[in-house]
Design a protein around this nucleic acid. Structure first.
Lengths: 334, 334
DNA sequence: TCTTTTTACTTAAACGATTTCTATAATTGA
DNA sequence: TCAATTATAGAAATCGTTTAAGTAAAAAGA
């Protein structure tokens, strides 16, 4: 490996001069800088990130902490999209990402973050009550949280409240009044969505039917199918069912078809997430697409800003709206 | 941050002793070791990975290089599963992972790898002819490749040849003889599958029909639908169509249904990959599930073995078989 | 011309660990 | 009892980089 020492020797200057030349300090002559840079280029020099990090306390590395209900990790569609976007933006700014996990060497999240010397951490997590997560959030590290708001941190959240309201208002505008909602695991996200569902109904002057709201789980088509059958058996069957996510909606679709009914003619179905697959199945799902790309992008930009300028805004809540994808799974009632 | 210096002071010993005690060297007394370890524990000491890496040239970090046809990155289902598995196994062994990209600071893959001082690299890539990829493969770094074989490296490959043959033989065993194959982008993986398709047909005594093989793309349901329609228009229509992946198969399903035909009654459909979604749609897709979990696991184990014991096997090809998932999209012909 | 300022570098310490070599004390052997 | 061995620990160098402080020469000011 080529080090600054090699360049220094070759250029007959000191290592310090090489360092300053490459970092464009003002106390090095232009001619010297040029020569050093050219030599560095010619020798194929690249800095050693460990040495630099050791000295400067900056690693150009961002920690990513993600734990979801099902420990699905990278295979979680929504998170994968958010992370992919986060990663792209970070990379352009010269940051690499490191996954923070509690597995390795029995370190807590915070310990792992310090061990790797990450410059900041982005947290997308189901369990924000976890002691270790809280320790990280209350640490001195720059932190941005996704889909959860802390009063001392920057957070980027998908507009679940607005999204749910939009969906309810949308199906209502198509004539639906008996709108059921099968919702996901008990998390902050879910609570927001459920509350928004009730509020939207109320504002539309629709009385909520207790039989119409059912606690299910995320990404569990089997369970969703089961509760769908339960809804279908009601004397006063809903005309439209909202699901916690697209997978669950697919489970619902299947249950409905198996019951000999047709979507959307007999009953309407609405997903959530706007996954790629929701738009290639038949019928195309009407769903609420979370802007995962934007969420990742903003989270990265915010975190990097925070890292580079520690004086910048420390507390902020950025709401990222999504949009309804009008598929073919909701029928207009006359 | 607590450093060895702090522990040394607290225990009235030298830093060298602390280092040796924590690393369990034999020239430190048991009592001293115990005391130092307890103090380290009490102070919440954890090593600084940069300092350690700088000195030892080992970072406990593994580089991951992945580039697919569509630059889908982390949102690529198959890769996400492989990587997730790879990551879990690595973490248990104390390794973190770092994505190698060419974006950051105009470094090549190899330069980026050295910059971060990764101990080894796993490569899953579509374009193994890329100059930069080859530089990395021919470097001094421990490398394991996924789904591509190099004669100087360890590779873990999904058994595309076996998989394709199994599928052909399977549908043939159900009575199909007119088996079409819409295949993906031109890559080594694709070439293997196509060759295996032809070989299997030949071995079964079936003459290949040129109209039955069509070059399409991966994860492109629209294109798959288009070619499906093309197949449906043939005078001698195939009874079964194999697709490059599950998404494409879904595109095929739609095209077939739109043509007023039913799967599997009128025509059978076979996917590839065994994605989660393929098993929740209707009809459940008959598909070949690649053992992505195992591939990631083996790749991680092999790479870590290689890193820890540079003398261990340097060249090896590990074939990972998958399995047919019998869905409901293939009909038994009588 | 002599002092002051500026320019352009160099020296040396530091970051936090590891490791080789050295030193001392305790133990063993004869 | 004295030399040789063993056990335990410390000193110091080192990894590659950054940076505060120092220095010499050149330029500017008077």
């Amino acid at each position: 490996m080529i080090s600054m020492k090699d360049i220094a020797d070759r250029c007959s200057v000191s290592v310090a001069t090489v360092s300053k030349a490459l970092n464009n300090h003002s106390d090095i002559g232009e001619e010297t800088k040029r020569h050093i840079r050219e030599t560095a280029e010619k020798l194929g020099y690249h800095p050693n990130s460990s040495a630099r990090a050791l000295k400067t306390k900056r690693s150009a590395n961002i920690g990513v902490l993600f734990v979801d209900e099902g420990r699905s990790g990278l295979t979680h569609d929504y998170f994968a999209k958010v992370l992919d976007s986060f990663k792209r933006v970070s990379e352009v700014s010269g940051y690499d990402i490191t996954f923070i996990n509690a597995t390795s060497q029995k370190m807590t999240y915070l310990e792992h973050s310090r061990y790797r010397g990450v410059d900041g951490v982005v947290i997308a997590c189901v369990d924000f009550d976890d002691r270790d997560v809280l320790d990280l959030i209350n640490s001195e590290l720059p932190v941005v949280t996704i889909d959860h708001v802390f009063d001392n941190r920057i957070s980027v959240v998908s507009d679940n409240i607005g999204g749910m309201r939009e969906l309810v208002e949308y199906v209502h505008s198509l004539g639906h009044e008996r709108i059921a909602y099968i919702y996901g695991d008990d998390t902050a996200v879910t609570r927001n969505r459920v509350a928004s569902y009730y509020n939207a109904l109320k504002d539309l002057g629709i009385e909520a039917d207790d039989n119409y709201t059912i606690a299910s789980a995320y990404r569990n088509p089997k369970l969703a199918a089961k509760y769908t059958r339960q809804l279908l058996e009601l004397k006063k069957r809903p005309t439209c069912i909202l699901y916690p996510d697209d997978y669950s909606a697919i489970g619902g679709l299947n249950a409905i078809e198996e019951a000999g009914l047709t979507v959307p003619d007999d009953i309407s179905v609405v997903g959530y997430d706007g996954l790629y697959v929701s738009q290639i199945i038949h019928p195309r799902l009407t769903t609420y697409e979370q802007n995962s790309e934007e969420i990742g992008r903003i989270a990265a930009k915010s975190l990097i800003r925070l890292i580079r300028d520690q004086k910048s805004t420390l507390i902020e809540k950025i709401l990222v709206p999504g949009r309804i994808i009008e598929g073919a799974s909701v029928r207009k009632l006359n």
